[in-house]
C-alpha cells in the first residue's frame, strides 16, 4: 500500500523513473563536487612548519605561505611604536632569517624566546610575517639546530 503511494497515486508520480534516478545522481554529484573542492582546498591551505634551515634548503618559493619556528635572536627585536614597524631575526642556530611585520608584537615576544611566524618570503629573501605567534610559547620551543621539527 505504501509502495503504491510512494510511486504516486497522484498525477505527479507519473513523472517517471528517469527523473527519480536524477535525484540520486544529483545527490551523488553534489557529494563528489564537495569532495573535490575539499581535497583541492586542503592542498592549497596546508601551512608547513619549517625551521629557517629547512626553509632555505627547500628553496621555499617567494610568496608561499609557511610557518617558521625558531628563536628570536638576541639584540634583533625592534618595534617602532610610531610606524608600528616590527622586525627581528629568527634563527635555529644554523640559519637566520630576517622577519618584518607590521603591528604590535604579541605580549610576550622577546629575545631568546621561541616564536612562530606565519607569512611568506619576499623576493629579497626577507620573511614578511602576516602573523607572529608567541603567545603560546609556553607550549612551543624552538627546534634544536638543524633538526627536523618532527613533533610539535
Amino acid at each position: 500500500m505504501r509502495r503504491s503511494r510512494a510511486t504516486g497515486s497522484d498525477g505527479r508520480g507519473a513523472q517517471g523513473i528517469g527523473e527519480r534516478r536524477l535525484v540520486a545522481l544529483a545527490a551523488l554529484a553534489l557529494a563528489i563536487a564537495i569532495g573535490f573542492l575539499a581535497v583541492q582546498s586542503l592542498a592549497g591551505s596546508a601551512v608547513y612548519y619549517l625551521t629557517p634551515t629547512e626553509a632555505k634548503e627547500r628553496g621555499l618559493a617567494a610568496g608561499q605561505t609557511a610557518r617558521l619556528g625558531g628563536q628570536v635572536e638576541a639584540g634583533t627585536l625592534r618595534y617602532e611604536p610610531t610606524t608600528r614597524d616590527l622586525r627581528f631575526v629568527i634563527g635555529d642556530g644554523v640559519s637566520r632569517v630576517l622577519v618584518i611585520g607590521t603591528g604590535a608584537p604579541p605580549g610576550l615576544l622577546r629575545e631568546g624566546a621561541g616564536a612562530v611566524v606565519e607569512g611568506a618570503f619576499a623576493a629579497d629573501g626577507v620573511f614578511r610575517a602576516t602573523q607572529v605567534i608567541a603567545k603560546h610559547d609556553e607550549v612551543y620551543e624552538a627546534p634544536p639546530p638543524g633538526a627536523t621539527p618532527s613533533r610539535r
Binding site: G93, Y140, E141, P143, P144, R151, R152
Partner: peptide, 16 residues
C-alpha cells in the same frame, strides 16, 4: 605525539 617532546630542544644549547 607527545607535545612535551619538542621542549627537550633546549638540551645542548646555552642556558638562557
Amino acid at each position: 605525539r607527545d607535545p612535551r617532546d619538542i621542549r627537550t630542544a633546549v638540551v645542548g644549547k646555552e642556558a638562557p
